[in-house]
Design a protein around this nucleic acid. Structure first.
Length: 274
DNA sequence: TAGGGATGGGTAA
DNA sequence: TACCCCTCCCTAA
Protein backbone atom coordinates (compact mmCIF):
# COMPACT_ATOMS: atom_id res chain seq x y z
CA UNK A 1 0.00 0.00 0.00
CA UNK A 2 2.07 2.85 1.23
CA UNK A 3 4.19 4.77 -1.21
CA UNK A 4 3.96 8.56 -1.12
CA UNK A 5 0.65 8.77 -2.96
CA UNK A 6 -1.05 6.78 -0.18
CA UNK A 7 0.09 9.19 2.52
CA UNK A 8 -0.97 12.24 0.56
CA UNK A 9 -4.35 10.65 -0.03
CA UNK A 10 -4.72 9.92 3.68
CA UNK A 11 -3.68 13.50 4.53
CA UNK A 12 -6.29 14.81 2.12
CA UNK A 13 -9.03 12.64 3.61
CA UNK A 14 -8.06 13.36 7.22
CA UNK A 15 -8.06 17.07 6.44
CA UNK A 16 -11.48 16.93 4.81
CA UNK A 17 -12.94 14.97 7.72
CA UNK A 18 -11.35 16.73 10.68
CA UNK A 19 -9.79 20.13 9.92
CA UNK A 20 -11.31 22.78 12.16
CA UNK A 21 -13.07 20.17 14.28
CA UNK A 22 -12.50 19.20 17.88
CA UNK A 23 -11.90 15.45 17.83
CA UNK A 24 -11.64 12.59 20.25
CA UNK A 25 -8.35 10.72 20.07
CA UNK A 26 -7.88 7.31 21.66
CA UNK A 27 -5.73 4.20 21.50
CA UNK A 28 -7.99 1.14 21.63
CA UNK A 29 -4.93 -1.09 21.42
CA UNK A 30 -3.28 0.82 24.27
CA UNK A 31 0.20 1.32 22.89
CA UNK A 32 -0.47 4.98 22.07
CA UNK A 33 -2.51 5.78 25.19
CA UNK A 34 -0.19 8.52 26.51
CA UNK A 35 0.09 10.24 23.12
CA UNK A 36 -3.64 10.04 22.49
CA UNK A 37 -4.31 11.73 25.83
CA UNK A 38 -2.22 14.72 24.69
CA UNK A 39 -4.40 15.17 21.59
CA UNK A 40 -7.84 14.19 22.87
CA UNK A 41 -10.46 16.96 22.71
CA UNK A 42 -8.16 19.25 20.72
CA UNK A 43 -8.98 20.80 17.33
CA UNK A 44 -7.29 19.54 14.18
CA UNK A 45 -5.60 22.39 12.32
CA UNK A 46 -4.23 20.63 9.25
CA UNK A 47 -3.17 17.24 7.91
CA UNK A 48 -0.22 17.12 5.50
CA UNK A 49 2.29 14.68 4.07
CA UNK A 50 5.90 14.80 2.96
CA UNK A 51 7.00 11.65 1.18
CA UNK A 52 5.85 8.72 3.28
CA UNK A 53 5.54 10.80 6.46
CA UNK A 54 2.15 12.03 7.66
CA UNK A 55 1.65 14.97 10.00
CA UNK A 56 -1.62 15.91 11.68
CA UNK A 57 -1.32 19.30 13.34
CA UNK A 58 -3.50 19.90 16.40
CA UNK A 59 -4.19 23.13 18.28
CA UNK A 60 -1.66 23.75 21.00
CA UNK A 61 1.45 23.08 18.88
CA UNK A 62 1.06 19.35 18.99
CA UNK A 63 1.67 17.27 15.90
CA UNK A 64 0.78 13.65 15.35
CA UNK A 65 3.59 12.05 13.31
CA UNK A 66 2.75 8.80 11.53
CA UNK A 67 4.79 6.49 9.31
CA UNK A 68 2.95 3.41 8.05
CA UNK A 69 6.00 1.33 7.23
CA UNK A 70 5.26 -1.70 5.12
CA UNK A 71 2.11 -3.01 6.72
CA UNK A 72 0.43 -0.02 8.31
CA UNK A 73 -3.00 1.25 7.27
CA UNK A 74 -5.00 4.37 8.06
CA UNK A 75 -8.65 4.23 7.07
CA UNK A 76 -11.05 7.16 7.23
CA UNK A 77 -14.75 6.39 7.19
CA UNK A 78 -17.95 8.32 7.57
CA UNK A 79 -19.85 6.77 10.44
CA UNK A 80 -23.46 5.99 9.76
CA UNK A 81 -24.43 6.57 13.35
CA UNK A 82 -23.41 8.68 16.28
CA UNK A 83 -21.52 7.05 19.08
CA UNK A 84 -18.96 4.37 19.60
CA UNK A 85 -17.90 2.49 16.52
CA UNK A 86 -16.77 -1.10 17.08
CA UNK A 87 -13.01 -1.60 17.14
CA UNK A 88 -11.80 -4.23 14.69
CA UNK A 89 -8.27 -5.59 15.07
CA UNK A 90 -5.33 -3.78 16.63
CA UNK A 91 -6.19 -0.09 16.38
CA UNK A 92 -3.19 1.92 17.56
CA UNK A 93 -4.93 5.26 17.23
CA UNK A 94 -8.47 6.37 16.49
CA UNK A 95 -9.47 9.92 15.62
CA UNK A 96 -13.20 10.45 15.72
CA UNK A 97 -16.05 12.92 15.63
CA UNK A 98 -19.78 12.29 15.55
CA UNK A 99 -19.62 11.68 11.83
CA UNK A 100 -16.16 10.34 11.02
CA UNK A 101 -13.79 7.75 12.43
CA UNK A 102 -10.18 7.20 11.33
CA UNK A 103 -8.37 4.06 12.47
CA UNK A 104 -4.59 3.61 12.35
CA UNK A 105 -3.27 0.04 12.34
CA UNK A 106 0.24 -1.40 12.27
CA UNK A 107 2.27 1.82 11.87
CA UNK A 108 6.00 1.84 12.38
CA UNK A 109 5.81 5.36 13.83
CA UNK A 110 2.98 6.97 15.79
CA UNK A 111 4.05 9.72 18.15
CA UNK A 112 3.27 13.25 19.26
CA UNK A 113 5.95 15.79 18.32
CA UNK A 114 6.50 19.55 18.40
CA UNK A 115 6.55 21.81 15.32
CA UNK A 116 10.34 22.00 15.66
CA UNK A 117 10.59 18.23 15.61
CA UNK A 118 8.39 18.16 12.52
CA UNK A 119 10.75 20.63 10.84
CA UNK A 120 13.63 18.30 11.59
CA UNK A 121 11.83 15.46 9.80
CA UNK A 122 11.18 17.65 6.73
CA UNK A 123 14.82 18.70 6.74
CA UNK A 124 15.96 15.09 6.41
CA UNK A 125 13.73 14.38 3.41
CA UNK A 126 14.42 15.06 -0.26
CA UNK A 127 11.97 16.75 -2.63
CA UNK A 128 8.55 15.13 -2.96
CA UNK A 129 6.98 15.10 -6.45
CA UNK A 130 3.56 15.70 -4.86
CA UNK A 131 4.76 18.69 -2.89
CA UNK A 132 7.72 20.29 -4.61
CA UNK A 133 8.02 21.77 -8.08
CA UNK A 134 11.79 21.80 -8.01
CA UNK A 135 13.49 18.40 -8.05
CA UNK A 136 17.02 19.76 -8.40
CA UNK A 137 18.07 19.00 -4.81
CA UNK A 138 17.58 15.32 -5.68
CA UNK A 139 19.57 15.68 -8.88
CA UNK A 140 22.46 17.29 -6.97
CA UNK A 141 22.63 14.21 -4.78
CA UNK A 142 22.24 11.72 -7.63
CA UNK A 143 24.89 13.21 -9.90
CA UNK A 144 27.49 12.97 -7.15
CA UNK A 145 26.78 9.37 -6.20
CA UNK A 146 28.32 6.12 -7.38
CA UNK A 147 25.27 4.16 -6.20
CA UNK A 148 22.86 2.91 -8.86
CA UNK A 149 19.93 5.06 -9.88
CA UNK A 150 17.67 2.19 -8.74
CA UNK A 151 19.10 2.46 -5.23
CA UNK A 152 19.07 6.26 -5.18
CA UNK A 153 15.40 6.58 -6.15
CA UNK A 154 14.50 4.63 -3.00
CA UNK A 155 16.50 6.81 -0.61
CA UNK A 156 14.08 9.15 1.10
CA UNK A 157 16.72 11.76 1.86
CA UNK A 158 17.40 11.97 -1.90
CA UNK A 159 13.81 11.79 -3.17
CA UNK A 160 10.80 11.52 -0.86
CA UNK A 161 7.79 9.30 -1.45
CA UNK A 162 9.07 6.85 -4.04
CA UNK A 163 8.92 3.14 -3.23
CA UNK A 164 9.69 -0.06 -5.05
CA UNK A 165 6.75 0.01 -7.48
CA UNK A 166 7.22 3.57 -8.73
CA UNK A 167 10.99 3.14 -9.06
CA UNK A 168 10.73 -0.01 -11.16
CA UNK A 169 7.96 1.37 -13.32
CA UNK A 170 9.37 4.84 -13.96
CA UNK A 171 12.75 3.41 -14.97
CA UNK A 172 11.03 1.08 -17.42
CA UNK A 173 8.84 3.86 -18.82
CA UNK A 174 11.98 5.75 -19.85
CA UNK A 175 14.12 2.76 -20.82
CA UNK A 176 16.68 3.61 -18.17
CA UNK A 177 19.12 0.96 -17.01
CA UNK A 178 18.50 0.64 -13.24
CA UNK A 179 22.16 -0.21 -12.64
CA UNK A 180 23.40 3.12 -14.03
CA UNK A 181 25.48 4.85 -11.36
CA UNK A 182 24.04 8.22 -10.35
CA UNK A 183 27.21 9.97 -11.48
CA UNK A 184 26.73 8.59 -15.00
CA UNK A 185 23.01 9.30 -15.29
CA UNK A 186 22.27 11.94 -17.91
CA UNK A 187 20.56 15.11 -16.79
CA UNK A 188 17.91 14.57 -19.47
CA UNK A 189 17.15 11.14 -17.98
CA UNK A 190 16.72 12.65 -14.54
CA UNK A 191 14.40 15.31 -15.93
CA UNK A 192 12.26 12.59 -17.54
CA UNK A 193 12.11 10.72 -14.23
CA UNK A 194 11.18 13.77 -12.18
CA UNK A 195 8.55 15.12 -14.57
CA UNK A 196 7.03 11.67 -14.96
CA UNK A 197 6.77 11.21 -11.19
CA UNK A 198 5.15 14.64 -11.01
CA UNK A 199 2.59 13.35 -13.49
CA UNK A 200 2.05 9.83 -12.09
CA UNK A 201 1.87 10.41 -8.34
CA UNK A 202 -1.24 12.63 -8.51
CA UNK A 203 -3.01 9.82 -10.38
CA UNK A 204 -2.09 7.58 -7.45
CA UNK A 205 -3.62 10.09 -5.04
CA UNK A 206 -6.78 10.37 -7.13
CA UNK A 207 -7.32 6.63 -7.59
CA UNK A 208 -5.65 5.16 -4.50
CA UNK A 209 -3.65 2.90 -6.80
CA UNK A 210 -0.30 3.06 -8.49
CA UNK A 211 -1.04 3.65 -12.16
CA UNK A 212 1.84 3.54 -14.64
CA UNK A 213 0.66 1.78 -17.80
CA UNK A 214 0.11 4.28 -20.64
CA UNK A 215 -3.47 3.46 -21.58
CA UNK A 216 -4.56 3.57 -17.94
CA UNK A 217 -2.68 6.82 -17.37
CA UNK A 218 -4.50 8.39 -20.31
CA UNK A 219 -7.86 6.98 -19.30
CA UNK A 220 -7.57 8.39 -15.79
CA UNK A 221 -6.20 11.72 -16.90
CA UNK A 222 -9.12 12.29 -19.25
CA UNK A 223 -11.64 11.12 -16.67
CA UNK A 224 -10.19 13.55 -14.13
CA UNK A 225 -10.31 16.31 -16.71
CA UNK A 226 -14.00 15.60 -17.27
CA UNK A 227 -14.56 15.43 -13.53
CA UNK A 228 -15.76 11.84 -13.82
CA UNK A 229 -15.36 9.09 -11.31
CA UNK A 230 -12.47 6.81 -12.10
CA UNK A 231 -12.99 3.10 -12.14
CA UNK A 232 -10.22 0.57 -12.70
CA UNK A 233 -10.66 -3.13 -12.19
CA UNK A 234 -7.36 -4.39 -13.49
CA UNK A 235 -4.12 -4.00 -11.65
CA UNK A 236 -1.34 -3.75 -14.15
CA UNK A 237 2.31 -2.85 -14.37
CA UNK A 238 5.08 -2.94 -16.94
CA UNK A 239 7.65 -4.82 -14.86
CA UNK A 240 6.72 -4.84 -11.17
CA UNK A 241 6.10 -8.42 -10.01
CA UNK A 242 6.20 -9.67 -13.60
CA UNK A 243 9.31 -11.83 -13.34
CA UNK A 244 9.56 -14.33 -16.20
CA UNK A 245 6.80 -12.68 -18.22
CA UNK A 246 7.40 -10.88 -21.50
CA UNK A 247 8.20 -7.20 -21.65
CA UNK A 248 5.28 -5.43 -23.40
CA UNK A 249 7.71 -3.31 -25.37
CA UNK A 250 10.33 -5.74 -26.65
CA UNK A 251 9.20 -9.24 -25.70
CA UNK A 252 12.26 -10.07 -23.64
CA UNK A 253 11.91 -11.82 -20.32
CA UNK A 254 11.51 -9.54 -17.32
CA UNK A 255 14.17 -10.04 -14.70
CA UNK A 256 14.24 -9.64 -10.94
CA UNK A 257 17.14 -9.08 -8.60
CA UNK A 258 17.51 -8.20 -4.97
CA UNK A 259 18.94 -4.70 -4.68
CA UNK A 260 19.65 -3.57 -1.12
CA UNK A 261 17.02 -5.88 0.34
CA UNK A 262 14.27 -5.04 -2.15
CA UNK A 263 13.31 -6.77 -5.36
CA UNK A 264 14.09 -4.75 -8.46
CA UNK A 265 12.19 -5.73 -11.61
CA UNK A 266 13.40 -4.64 -15.03
CA UNK A 267 13.85 -5.52 -18.68
CA UNK A 268 17.52 -6.04 -19.42
CA UNK A 269 16.96 -5.69 -23.15
CA UNK A 270 15.14 -2.41 -23.63
CA UNK A 271 16.26 -0.58 -20.49
CA UNK A 272 19.72 0.41 -21.64
CA UNK A 273 19.75 4.18 -21.39
CA UNK A 274 21.88 6.03 -18.89
C1' DT B 1 -8.43 -22.08 5.06
C1' DA B 2 -3.77 -21.47 6.01
C1' DG B 3 0.45 -19.43 5.09
C1' DG B 4 3.78 -16.47 3.13
C1' DG B 5 5.44 -12.22 1.13
C1' DA B 6 5.42 -7.21 0.56
C1' DT B 7 4.24 -0.71 -1.94
C1' DG B 8 9.44 0.63 4.67
C1' DG B 9 12.60 1.79 7.49
C1' DG B 10 14.38 2.25 12.29
C1' DT B 11 17.09 -0.05 15.65
C1' DA B 12 19.80 -3.62 17.69
C1' DA B 13 23.50 -6.92 16.97
C1' DT C 1 22.17 -8.83 8.82
C1' DA C 2 18.02 -9.74 11.73
C1' DC C 3 14.12 -8.28 13.69
C1' DC C 4 10.02 -5.48 14.52
C1' DC C 5 5.31 -3.56 13.22
C1' DC C 6 1.24 -7.45 13.12
C1' DT C 7 -2.03 -5.62 7.80
C1' DC C 8 -3.56 -7.00 3.42
C1' DC C 9 -3.51 -9.75 -0.60
C1' DC C 10 -2.50 -13.60 -3.23
C1' DT C 11 -1.60 -18.46 -3.84
C1' DA C 12 -1.65 -23.22 -2.82
C1' DA C 13 -4.33 -26.73 -1.01
Amino acid sequence: MPEGHTLHRIARDLHAAFAGRVVSVSSPQGRFAAGAALLDEHAVVEARAHGKHLFVEFAGERVLHVHLGLIGTFTIDATAYVGERPVVGQVRCRIATDDHAADLRGPITCRVITPDEESAVHHKLGPDPLRDIDGDPAWERIRRSRKSVAALLMEQDVLAGIGNVYRCEVLHRHRINPMTPGERLKRTSWELIWSDLRRLLPLGVATGRIVTVAHEVQEIESALLEGEDVHLDERTSYVYKRTGQQCDRCGSVIRAKDVAGRTLYWCGNCQRRS
